[in-house]
Nucleic acid binder design. Structure first.
Lengths: 201, 201
DNA sequence: TCAATTCTTTGTCGATCGATAAAGAATCAT
DNA sequence: ATGATTCTTTATCGATCGACAAAGAATTGA
């Protein structure tokens, strides 16, 4: 077993692929683009990653494990629903507007206008977005159970509200709206949650 | 002058093109898709519309003149900033979730992940989105001047906030979130504006 | 040393991309 | 009627799409 060793760093190549897909999306990034971005001939890419779609799915997984993982991290690390939501939104803005990096959210913008033959990719990303909405809603429900939020709080609606706002943030960031303005509107949006808070909880 | 008359209805063909682009985006809709959707051989399409990009721009203009024109209509027809914002959001939801129609906003989703050679289309739609944000901000500033909103209201931030939410609504609608849930979150979002209202104005 | 294995390189595959040339068909003005 | 004009049809263009065959190069275990 084990023949000639690979001459390039697979992880490093995957990072470059993630950035390319993040910036231009699944269909917006051609194999020729990847060849040039990764500095690898196409048979080397296919040997290491299988297909363009396989590479894309790995790239999204890498994104979600790092830059795009702010929601998961906020959910895991913050003690209150209030802090989870605000940190998630603030880190979303930071991630979506980082200078010298692709703008917006890879999960939101990498496959919105797709040809029919790539519907599987489109639906896969949609499921990721819906799963994120569900996790936000669940956390708010937990906040109600914990006595952090008023008992009559509609957690699903509030979760939909923040998920919708977060997806909108990605669009705005891609359009070049500066991060200061995005942070300012988050301050407005946090008031909806503050209104549901039980003081001193 | 005036040779053989055109055998098909140009306006009707444009509507079909608008629906195709609305559903699948600029690059997601191929000329072959258009040929099949319009029921016209490609030379007839080129003769009537010039190029795929010209056709797309006309299709977007048609969208904005009808289904996508709710923001403009609300701004023109509603007497208060409060009513403009709510009607705009409610009609956005209705438009984005209409059964049997393409879901979401054509301006938001038709060109997000584009190849480099179609950057012009992408930027053109981005400008449309930014112009919509500006018009919302301007209307809120007017509300402050009219004495409808409290004098210390940050109209730009509030406008950014509603524009962001509206763009997020398009993503959610495309993901299949039912319109009842979207209407519910709008009710939450309207409280941010209600908090800035001067009672009895 | 030498088969077995794996990676790299070169060249190219069929399909599809947007777009058009050329010829036939139908209308106009005269 | 006839020439000018415009639309429709058929066939196809070169470029690019994602993907791979085949051969050479480098490492392994025996």
């Amino acid at each position: 077993m084990a023949g000639r060793p690979r001459e390039f760093d697979r992880d490093q190549a995957l990072e470059k692929a993630r950035d390319a897909f993040w910036a231009r999306g699944y269909e917006g990034t051609s194999m020729a683009d990847l060849v040039s971005a990764l500095g690898l001939a196409s048979p080397r890419i296919y040997a290491a990653f299988g297909s363009k779609e396989d590479l894309f799915r790995e790239a999204v997984a890498l994104y979600e494990a790092n830059e795009g993982g702010f929601a998961t991290r906020a959910l895991a690390e913050e003690p209150t629903a209030r802090r989870v939501i605000e940190r998630m939104l603030r880190e979303a803005v930071e991630t979506y507007t980082r200078p010298g990096r692709p703008q917006g959210c890879m999960v939101v913008s990498a496959a919105t206008n797709c040809a029919v033959e790539n519907d599987s990719v489109l639906h896969w990303l949609a499921e990721h977005r819906l799963a994120r909405t569900v996790s936000i809603v669940e956390r708010l429900k937990q906040g109600v159970r914990d006595g952090e939020l008023k008992p009559d709080t509609d957690a699903e609606t509030l979760g939909d509200y923040y998920a919708t706002l977060m997806h909108g943030l990605s669009v705005q960031a891609r359009d070049g709206v500066p991060k200061e303005r995005l942070h300012a509107l988050i301050t407005v949006a946090m008031q909806s949650l503050d209104a549901r808070l039980i003081r001193g909880a």
